[in-house]
Nucleic acid binder design. Structure first.
Length: 261
DNA sequence: ATGGCCGGCGCAGCCGGA
């Protein structure tokens, strides 16, 4: 079972690119971020034609997350718990039925947090705290789940081509990295690092020829519960998509889970 | 890693992104 996540940077601008990638990659589940669309305007039909059930949690102009699944959704929940006063659409979680059981998959778009001397940084850290609290609760169920999305976190120096440039940035601040470590230390597995030790990126800036010079960062992650990690067969980044026409600045990253029996 | 981009909104030029 293939589960992918991709910050598409606008579903309207990316519809052709997204459909081309879905046809090529054929994921069972795709978590999308930054759809930048209200739910009513999401181009459902185009994705439905490829066989996907669709759930969205969007807002006008910014943010917005979606879940596409070839298997049916048993239940879907938007927002993290204790999020009621937050008008930003950044979290959507679905329980998906597969022949051998169920798997819970979340599409998340963690706040950027810059500039760090603005309220945006404490908002990011608060969001990470709520995510950790929620993950702790999910772990008590002892079931397979995947927290997938744009974390806006560079976990380690080797996850950036030029880590020194990110010193002080909200994506790499000690508080941010500590919060990400704390989340993982609950017992979650960083799927990419479970499969590969070398330098791999998921984002290349549009500016200054970052893609051509391979000046990238790894900020899109899939964190797996122990029950999901036990089924992990592989994790890959579809970096070639960054070289397509009209690319997002992020590329898809996916896992293959053995969900037989 | 920015001087050099991009999308949304809405029809000019700003805001947000990473």
């Amino acid at each position: 079972m293939k589960i992918a996540t991709w910050n598409i940077n606008g579903v309207k601008a990316r519809i052709d690119t997204a459909l081309a990638w879905l046809k090529e990659a054929e994921p069972d589940v795709a978590c999308l971020q930054e759809i930048k669309s209200v739910d009513e305007n999401f181009p459902r039909e185009a994705f439905e034609k490829l066989g996907y059930n669709i759930e969205t949690h969007g807002q006008k102009g910014f943010n917005g997350v979606a879940l596409l699944s070839r298997h049916p959704f048993d239940e879907v929940t938007a927002r993290l718990p204790n999020d009621e006063e937050d008008e930003q659409t950044r979290y959507l979680e679905g329980v998906i039925s597969v022949p051998s059981g169920v798997i819970r998959v979340a599409s998340l778009y963690l706040p950027n947090g810059n500039p760090v001397d603005s309220p945006k940084f404490p908002y990011k850290l608060g969001w990470m705290e709520r995510l950790e609290r929620h993950a702790r609760k999910l772990l008590q169920e002892e079931e397979p789940f995947v927290l997938a999305g744009d974390y806006n976190v560079i976990p380690e120096p080797e996850d950036a081509r030029h880590p020194e440039i990110w010193e002080g940035d909200a994506l790499y601040r000690p508080e941010t990295r500590r919060a990400f470590r704390s989340l993982k230390n609950l017992g979650l597995t960083d799927a990419l690092r479970a499969c590969h030790a070398d330098e791999r990126f998921t984002f290349w800036d549009y500016q200054a020829g970052a893609w051509q010079k391979n000046i990238g960062i790894r900020i899109d992650h899939l964190l797996l519960s122990p029950q999901a990690a036990g089924r992990l067969r592989g994790c890959e980044i579809d970096a070639h998509v960054r070289g397509w026409e009209k690319p997002s600045d992020h590329v898809p990253i996916w896992i293959d889970l053995d969900m037989e029996a």
